[in-house]
């Protein structure tokens, strides 16, 4: 079933200044998986996503989305950055932020109109944030801000979603709401790639996993490779995690 390759990465090496953050990564992400990228702090998880999306320039290697460069396939890809990467005191509303998801398909100069607004409102509805559409973004809780970011990506109506720690600093209710949306996306045949920190929830939430620590340690179905051996290799200590069957 999963024979199409959504994202293919070959020999990817990325460095800030002199120290390599990612070293010679080869990775194939099959279409339709809900994949977690796990690894310790500084393992290059965010860097990997940013390199795929062309935000960072790799030193070597190539990334293709369904066989073509990111530039050509941009409309197939949506991105949820880390919540902390923006200033939430920026003077704008929740609806306005979600509307930004339509800017890519609009292109230069063209303004969002009714159609774009309708799409943004629908996305807000999906993440349960419709009642807050006119709220100034600084007056939203951390979990609500995260949902706004998720809604912005949903508006892009992409095939592949990249999310950088969407569960960071959110309460249990929001976490459940978000994971339900991710599972719905997978059900609709989308590919979802998530930088994830909470190892306990990996088997419950995801069906595919990539272990990363500067180098790629392992990648594959959670049920086959999410084990103490790979965790120890990635985190460098004797790691024991009880996997719920």
């Amino acid at each position: 079933m999963k024979n199409n390759i959504a994202v293919q990465i070959d020999d990817l090496t990325v460095a800030y200044n002199y120290k390599p953050v990612l070293w010679d990564i080869d990775l194939e992400i099959p279409e339709g998986v809900l994949m977690a990228i796990v690894g310790p702090n500084g393992a290059g998880k965010s860097t990997l996503i940013k390199s795929i999306l062309g935000i960072l320039k790799p030193i070597a290697g190539s990334v293709t989305i369904y066989g073509k460069s990111y530039k050509e396939q941009r409309s197939l890809v949506a991105y949820v950055p880390q919540k902390g990467s923006v200033d939430w005191d920026f003077p704008t509303t929740a609806l306005d932020v979600v509307m930004m998801g339509t800017y890519g398909s609009l292109g230069w100069i063209k303004r969002p109109r009714q159609k774009e607004k309708k799409a943004a409102l629908e996305a807000l509805e999906k993440v349960g944030m419709l009642p807050f559409k006119n709220r100034q973004i600084s007056q939203l809780s951390g979990g609500q801000q995260q949902r706004i970011f998720l809604a912005r990506a949903l508006v892009q109506d992409a095939s592949i979603y990249f999310m950088d720690e969407p569960f960071q600093g959110v309460d249990a209710t929001t976490e459940i709401a978000i994971i339900n949306i991710l599972k719905e996306l997978r059900k609709a045949g989308k590919t979802v790639i998530v930088v994830h920190h909470d190892l306990q929830t990996v088997p419950e939430y995801f069906d595919w996993v990539t272990f990363l620590n500067v180098k790629k340690i392992a990648t594959g179905p959670v049920k086959d490779i999410f084990n103490d051996d790979n965790l120890t290799k990635t985190y460098g200590i004797n790691y024991k995690v009880s996997i719920q069957e």
């Binding site: 940013k50 935000i55 930004m100 292109g107 100069i109």
Partner: peptide, 22 residues
């Protein structure tokens, strides 16, 4: 006025604007 949308997204979230192709 012409580049209002572009200015706004650059100010708020530069990396995201980049992934959208700006």
């Amino acid at each position: 006025l012409l580049f209002w949308k572009e200015f706004k997204i650059l100010l708020f979230d530069k990396d995201y604007a980049k992934t959208l192709g700006f």
